[in-house]
């Protein structure tokens, strides 16, 4: 989302500049040569159309709704363009360390996959939460889940994370279905 917001902001700036430039040109042109046709955009036609379009017409309502929707979308995009890195403690004065959520997931995934009886595992991580889904064929969920929970907790505790993420471990085992 960060890249999208950067490109969007670039385009919005350009749109603002173009709109301002066109307005200045048209107003100056109409001021200097009254009676002449408009320079670049046919604004007298827009003026006439808007002059006969009431506020409660469908066209106006749809336009207003779309505008409000686009505004809401822009706000949401700007709000979600946060940094998602995971902060580690500073090892020394003036040194800041982060790692990516993906790396945190890899560290945990590496440990979980090397645990006994784990057939496959998927891990998603953020600074706040780590979710582990593991599959096994040899143990039930009740047997494996506490062990994995402890393992993940140990792995996370060994990292110098600023914020302890919550951990959730789900085990999927065919033995539970019998």
């Amino acid at each position: 989302m960060r890249v999208v917001v950067r490109i969007l902001s670039c385009l919005l700036g350009l749109a603002l500049a173009v709109a301002g430039g066109l307005a200045v040109l048209e107003i100056a042109w109409a001021w200097a040569r009254p009676g002449d046709p408009a320079l670049l955009i046919d604004w007298p036609r827009w003026r006439d159309e808007l002059g006969s379009l009431p506020w409660n017409s469908t066209a106006m309502r749809v336009t207003a709704g779309v505008l409000a929707g686009v505004g809401l979308l822009l706000l949401l995009m700007a709000a979600t363009a946060r940094r998602k890195e995971v902060r580690l403690n500073d090892p020394a004065e003036g040194v800041s360390v982060t790692t990516s959520p993906r790396s945190l997931a890899r560290i945990v995934g590496f440990q979980v996959r090397s645990a006994d009886n784990v057939r496959a595992a998927s891990v998603t991580a953020s600074a706040r939460k780590i979710r582990v889904r593991a599959t096994t064929r040899l143990e039930t969920e009740a047997q494996l889940q506490p062990r994995l929970m402890e393992l993940v907790q140990e792995t996370v505790d060994a990292l110098p994370l600023v914020r302890r993420p919550k951990i959730s471990v789900v085990v999927d085992s065919p033995r539970d279905r019998r």
């Binding site: 890195e85 580690l88 003036g94 040194v95 800041s96 360390v97 982060t98 790692t99 990516s100 993906r102 790396s103 890899r106 560290i107 590496f110």
Partner: peptide, 8 residues
Amino acid sequence: TAVRLELG
């Protein structure tokens, strides 16, 4: 200094 660690 800012350090960014990427794993694997």
